[in-house]
Design a protein around this nucleic acid. Structure first.
Length: 745
DNA sequence: GACCTGCTGATTTTT
DNA sequence: TCAGCAGGTC
């Protein structure tokens, strides 16, 4: 094939600038594309892939890796638009984690896993580590599960195995960590599970363990494209090298100025040294920005100039000059919140929609006081990020029940499921089950099956352990034969978890039931759409998606999110808040040049999200950990040349109205339904079957578990419709009609 | 095994 | 300030 395209397909090159064309044309050999913010990176990637296919490369020979599902989805859509879905679907386009999981699944046996291995998220890992700390009897205060998990994760990202770390460990703390790390490695493998880091690591082990396998994938992935290359860690870097070694058809796209994940192992040197790793590489710079006004681009440029380590480039745009950046100094965080709401209101009055506006902050904690004010002023908003749906306790519990059906080795899933609802199997019984299973080399579930051989567990505990086993194995058969929304729903009902929350009957419990119900609806939809899929397909897929992937930025709501989350997005109006000393850049980065540069890149990312208007706010006083702290504007503010800014100062108004603040400040965590914020996926409940509206006081009914009873009171409305039912055998229960499946007698 | 209380420590978090 | 959890009590 020619390196330059002779038979230009007009669609592929339509609307591309010179450098974009160059990038799309250069098909063979190593290529580094430095793509500044808003320079059409995804466009270039998708058009380059289309061009590969236009030059007779088969879709399944192309590997395109991104960091987020969102980026992957967008890339896939754009490719499909260019070449049609039929061809596009064979391209290996996805996140590092999902593509690697897919490969590992098909090669699982050769690595001592089954293809239904579980994928542990950070919470699962932490829980497992907590368990290990307990079992090793480590009482050292400095050893806590989250810290150890982070430490182990960063070791894994640097490809340092437990064994290797053990030989290096010097301090007492390191020795403890190496002990935990060894145990963790062993247990997770034994659980037939991989954590997020393992997905990256095991690929390397797989490719290194067997030359045949390496060659197989080198041949398969003849053309490799990597998005956000500046964010790759060592494991990803090595995998890419292994795969690209033979053919060197590797194209990486990135922007060192937007590298903001150093703290989780990203090595900016990977992009800075690309031309050393691949000596014959071509470098193409995309410097024309199509997103922002001249003012914003110029300001961003001056900010990033303060960083020393970077690749030379200068973003420019043909867009209009645009408005100046407005910097608001506020007396305190209360006033800042009001300022933000008035900015939003003004912009809406001028014709913007709420969803044209984004508020970006450095730390999640900042969203709280902001939310209060937004609610009071009736501004519709949506928090992006934060607590994920899939991390909710009840969701994880239900998923654990499902996991046990496909991976009975998963002790983490077992531990979650066994006592939710409480079955009278406490810590002591659990420990005995564990001892038995370790001694006899069986799963915990098998230990339940053989409960009669464990004399330490008797009575109620023994009985319910056996029942637990029976339930799991019964549904394992049912769901293996017939995997769909109905059988799974039956199973979850049989576990008693919904009934448990019905009995608790608090608002919180009803929220949890609704979340479970939402999950069951999702599962039902999944199996409707993917008839050939199995339960482990579903579980692996779900374990790699995040909340953000499901957020609908098209809803007419203002988005609130951290600066990190905002990467890759754009909004006509952006408000960066809390740009003050000690908060942004964070206090602890003050004396560390590298960390400060990363904070500056984060600020740069924030600024370049704005298309038309940028606001920056800071407060002179802020409540921090219950104390008032005084600070001035961030040094970043003064790095923007004055010619691009307009400054506004505090009016000196004082806000003493703290009552309303208190009453709603918890709402975020309470997951309340309200008309201004969509935190839980509540909207799907607007379609309530009419059936439940037909119940009235005095009706005689039957409940699956509670038997016969009579409705004595009805309260709530819509999805919240509840009935107080007096049952013949179990007394009065409050039930949500939507889920109680009451039968009219 | 479930519940209460008092202590601790608190960045960012693509997967 | 305030959520999460370890450790004590019933």
């Amino acid at each position: 094939m020619n390196n330059t395209n002779s038979n230009k397909n007009s669609d592929i090159f339509n609307g591309l600038n010179k450098n974009q064309c160059l990038a799309v044309e250069s098909l063979n050999g190593p290529l580094l594309i430095i793509a500044g913010a808003g320079s059409g990176k995804t466009k270039v990637l998708s058009h380059r892939i289309a061009n590969l296919i236009d030059n007779s490369v088969l879709p399944h020979n192309i590997l395109a890796l991104t960091f987020t599902n969102k980026a992957a989805k967008e890339l896939r859509n754009r490719i499909a638009q260019l070449i049609g879905y039929e061809k596009a679907k064979y391209i290996w386009a996805g996140t590092f984690h999902s593509i690697f999981a897919r490969i590992l699944r098909s090669e699982a046996e050769s690595m001592g896993y089954t293809s239904a291995f579980s994928i542990y998220d950070t919470d699962d890992s932490s829980a497992q580590i907590k368990q290990i700390i307990k079992s090793l009897n480590i009482s050292d205060k400095s050893i806590n599960a989250t810290n150890v998990r982070n430490k182990i994760s960063s070791l894994k990202n640097k490809l340092i195995s437990a064994k290797e770390f053990t030989s290096k460990a010097e301090t007492i703390e390191e020795k403890y960590i190496s002990k935990i790390y060894n145990e963790y490695e062993y247990i997770v493998k034994n659980n037939n599970a991989m954590d997020f880091d393992d997905l990256l690591l095991n690929i390397i082990y797989l490719l290194r363990q067997d030359k045949g396998i390496l060659e197989k994938y080198q041949k398969l992935f003849r053309y490799i494209l990597i998005d956000e290359y500046q964010d790759t860690n060592k494991a990803q870097y090595i995998t890419i090298q292994l795969l690209a070694k033979a053919h060197q058809n590797i194209c990486v796209v990135g922007d060192d100025a937007q590298s903001i994940y150093r703290w989780r192992g990203a090595e900016i040197s990977n992009i800075l040294n690309f031309n050393k790793d691949y000596p014959y590489s071509k470098i193409i710079k995309l410097e024309q920005n199509y997103r922002s006004t001249k003012t914003i681009i110029e300001a961003a440029h001056h900010i990033i100039l303060n960083n020393h380590h970077q690749l030379a480039k200068k973003l420019w745009t043909e867009n209009p000059q645009g408005d100046k950046i407005i910097i608001h100094q506020c007396a305190d965080d209360r006033e800042e919140s009001f300022k933000i709401t008035s900015i939003i209101q003004d912009e809406v009055r001028r014709g913007m929609n709420y969803n044209d506006i984004a508020v970006l902050y450095r730390t999640n904690a900042q969203s709280l006081s902001l939310e209060n004010t937004l609610r009071m002023q009736k501004i519709p908003y949506d928090i992006i990020g934060g607590i994920s749906f899939y991390k909710r306790k009840e969701i994880k519990d239900v998923l654990s029940y499902l996991t046990l059906l496909v991976n009975d080795k998963d002790s983490e899933a077992f531990r979650r499921a066994i006592n939710e609802p409480p079955r009278g199997i406490g810590l002591t019984s659990l420990r005995n089950l564990q001892l038995y299973s370790e001694f006899n080399n069986t799963t915990l579930l098998d230990a339940c099956k053989n409960i009669e051989h464990i004399p330490e567990i008797k009575g109620k505990a023994a009985n319910s352990a056996l029942e637990f086993y029976k339930m799991i194995s019964e549904y394992k058969t049912i769901i293996q034969e017939n995997c769909n929304g109905d059988t799974i729903s039956d199973y979850i009902n049989a576990t008693g978890i919904i009934q448990m929350y019905e009995e608790i009957a608090s608002d919180d419990a009803y929220d949890r039931i609704r979340n479970i119900e939402q999950l069951l609806i999702d599962i039902d939809n999944y199996f409707d759409e993917n008839e050939l899929s199995t339960l482990d397909d579903y579980l692996q897929q779900i374990s790699l998606i995040t909340d953000i992937d499901n957020k609908d930025l098209d809803d007419n709501k203002t988005s609130l999110m951290t600066l990190h989350t905002a990467k890759g997005l754009e909004f006509p109006v952006v408000i960066i808040v809390g740009v003050e000393k000690g908060l942004f850049p964070l206090e602890r980065t003050r004396l560390n040049q590298e960390e400060e540069e990363e904070e500056r890149r984060l600020f740069y990312v924030g600024v370049t999200r704005a298309k038309e208007k940028l606001y920056i706010t800071y407060a002179l006083r802020r409540a921090k950990f219950g104390e008032i702290s005084n600070q001035g504007p961030s040094k970043f503010v003064s790095e923007i040349p004055k010619e691009y800014t307009n400054r506004a100062f505090s009016t000196g108004m004082s806000f003493t109205d703290t009552e309303s603040k208190k009453s709603i400040s918890r709402a975020k965590y309470d997951n309340n339904v309200n008309e201004y914020s969509q935190i839980a996926p509540d909207d799907n409940y607007s379609q309530i079957p009419n059936k439940i509206n037909s119940f009235k006081v005095g009706d005689k009914v039957r409940h699956q578990n509670f038997g016969k009873g009579k409705i004595i009171q009805i309260s709530g409305y819509g999805s919240q419709l509840k009935a107080n039912v007096s049952f013949e055998n179990v007394g009065v229960k409050v039930l949500m009609l939507q889920f109680a499946k009451l039968e009219k007698l």
